[in-house]
Each structure stands twice: as C-alpha cells, then as structure tokens.
Simulated scan of single mutants.
Amino acid sequence: MTRKVVFFTTGMTAGGAERVVATLANALDSRGFEVVIAMVKGEESAYDLPPGVRLRSANLNPGLRNLPAAIQFYRQLLREESPDVVASFSTKSDIIALIFRLLFRSESQLIVSDRADPYTRNRRLQLACNVLYRWSDGLVCQSESVADYYRKRCKRASIFVIPNPLSEDSVGETTKKCRSRTVIAVGRLSEQKNHRLAISAFKRIRERFPELTMKIYGSGPLENELTEMIRMADLEDNVTLEGVVPNVMRQHSDAALFLFTSNYEGYPNALMEAAAAGIPTVTTDFSPGTAREIIEDGVNGYVVPVGGEDEAVEASIKALSGKLDLAEVIAASQRVRKRHRTELILESWLNVFGPLGRKRLPL
C-alpha cells in the first residue's frame, strides 16, 4: 500500500519553511511515498518539485475572517486524500488543523511544526499555540531553545527536535582558496532582518578594509529605504541590493564574510548554509538563541548581541584579519553538513511519523 503524506502550509513562496517542505517532499517522493502539498493561499511553488508531488490550494487570504473557509478546505482535504500523516508547517496552518481536530474526529496522524520564534508572538497567539499544540500527535521544533520553551508550557505534547535539512546544491564544496573581498548578507528586506545594522557596520568595517564590497540578497518592504540609506552613506559603489537569487552560498563560497544581523529567527537556512559552505560568519544572538546551535563562537564565526553595531564591527574585523583558523572553519562546516544531511533529517521525520498507519486519538 502506498503511504501518503500531506504537507499543510500557508503557501509555497520563497521562504525557509517552504524550502524545507520542498526538500522533504522531494525526498519522500524518491522513496515511493505519495506526497501532497496543501496550501491556504497561492497556487504554485517557488521551489522545484517532482511531477509526482501534487499541489492543492484553498486560494484564501489567511486571517480570522477566512478561518471557517480554511477549516472547511482542510476537512475536504482529509476526506478526499485520506492521508496517513499530515505535517503542518506554519503557525496558521497549525492552528487550522488543530481547531479541526478539536471539532471533528480524524484518523490521520497530525504532526505540527513550529518554524518561528515563539517568544516574539503576541500574547494571544502564544496562548493559542501553547494550548492547541498539546493536541497534536507530535510537535517538531527546529532547535533545542524552542523545544525548551514548549517543554515548560506544553507538558502533554510529544516534542521532537529536528533541524532543517541542507540541500547540497545550495552550498557546493567548501573552498580552501583565498577569500574574495566580498561581504554577503541574505534575508528579506524587513525590520526582522535589520539590514540597517549590516549597512552601518559595513561602512565602519570599510574604514579598515576599503577594498571590500557588500552584496545584500533578498527583497521586501524596506528596499527603497535601504537604497536611500546606502546613497546617504555614500556607499553606492560598494553596497548593492541584489534581489532574490537562488543558491547564494554556492555562488559566494569564497566570500570574505557572511554578516547576519537578524533580531529574531526560527532556524535560518541562510545561516546554516553559510556555515556549511565554510564562510566565516558574524551573526547576532537572535531570539530564541538558535545562532549558537549553528555557529561555534570563535571557531567558524562570532556571535554578537542583537543590535550590537560596535560588537558586529569588532567581530567582523577580527574575522577579516584572519583570527579564525581556516582549517577549523572548514572542519566546522563538515560538522554542519553532517548534522543537516537531508537523508538524516528525513529519517528523523519518519521516526516522528512512526508506523504510517492510521491513528485516531480520543478527543
């Protein structure tokens, strides 16, 4: 009997959680699973999927107004697909699936996955997640820090820690050759990513290393503001906004530095890929604390306080001055690759799914 897994998510735009869904869907399809990706909004995937992976969409804008329609879509999805397992991959889809579970009986296993920083949610949403997640068959967290949050608040939940899988295509081979003079930053051009800090810090870094340039990859609502900031800082010849480009770390495996300045994150693929590519890194110690699970402070990079421009500048100068041992950076990159291998991550997910037989929980 073909085993069926439905991934349920808000959409399949070019984001970190969506990339994980695509990676897992590809891996399961190659193993003979029937895979469906069900979306609340949107009709297409920003990531390549094999022909065997089907997409379904409710074509709704997420929000309380459309919650009844979203629940009805989910109910129809379960009736028509009759999956062995549903794996939900966004806060909104988690809530939809769990409300349905409380209202109706379902024979499908329901695994929810928190892909965000629970500490930064508003209190109402925190309470909703803390109450609802305990009704899942399993709660997957990307990091120990997020798992610790839920261990204190969802004592009935079965909690698992599974980091994101690494696509080898996204990073290529680590390089032992001389570093370029390019600093890279990756992330949506939004308040969360705090690219203002990266630009301000880079201006000061160039006082020590005037030959450097910086490329910022991503798109978002702050594009015009950041463009003006670059102009006002007289950095137009040195800092460029490159837009959304796939596999940045493969293209820049010889980058001088990866500068990551987020205020908060879930489990950032960009940081994981930079570490796997062996690029010296300076990152903020963003909430909920995941940076230190990826970057070994003083080995393959430096972890600095959130918003700490002085600390970011000082750490960047140390990294650019050769204070990090290249052999240790490369050795750390191999540890990151090993821990995030797609096959290893897939096995962890399959262990969470358990025997893929139908399961009915008493409500």
Rank of each mutant, 00 (worst) to 15 (best):
E311W: 09
A46N: 08
G243R: 08
V313Y: 04
V171T: 12
S219T: 10
N26Q: 13
R115I: 05
P163R: 08
L320Y: 07
L222I: 02
D84S: 09
Y217I: 03
A97M: 09
E107I: 08
T227R: 12
T174G: 07
L55A: 15
R335A: 15
K41V: 12
D234E: 08
R181P: 11
P62H: 10
P246R: 03
P83I: 04
A70D: 13
A327N: 10
P221A: 05
S88E: 07
V313I: 11
L125T: 13
Q109M: 04
H340A: 01
I71R: 00
R335S: 15
G11F: 15
F353L: 02
A270W: 09
Q76I: 05
E293V: 12
R341M: 14
D234I: 06
K177Q: 12
G218A: 04
P246E: 11
D254W: 11
I216Q: 04
I230E: 11
V186C: 07
A116V: 09
E168H: 13
T284Q: 13
E236D: 06
A270G: 06
L320R: 04
E347V: 11
F8M: 11
S253P: 15
V20W: 01
A291T: 10
T240I: 05
A69Q: 14
E225L: 03
L125K: 07
A327E: 07
T283Q: 15
C141R: 01
H340V: 00
V36K: 07
P362K: 09
A256W: 02
V85N: 02
Y267W: 11
A38G: 03
A70K: 09
R360G: 15
R231L: 03
P268K: 12
R151A: 00
S145H: 14
A275R: 07
D234S: 08
G308Y: 05
Q142S: 04
A312I: 10
S93Q: 10
R134L: 01
L64K: 06
R188E: 14
I295V: 11
K338Y: 02
Y74H: 01
K92L: 12
E296L: 09
E242D: 08
E168P: 06
D29Y: 03
A255S: 11
N59R: 09
R335F: 05
A128Y: 03
L60F: 00
G308L: 01
C129T: 13
E80S: 08
T342S: 10
G220L: 08
N194W: 05
A97E: 06
E191H: 13
L55M: 10
A27N: 01
K155N: 07
V171R: 08
P62V: 11
S90H: 06
L60R: 00
R65L: 10
E309N: 04
E236I: 11
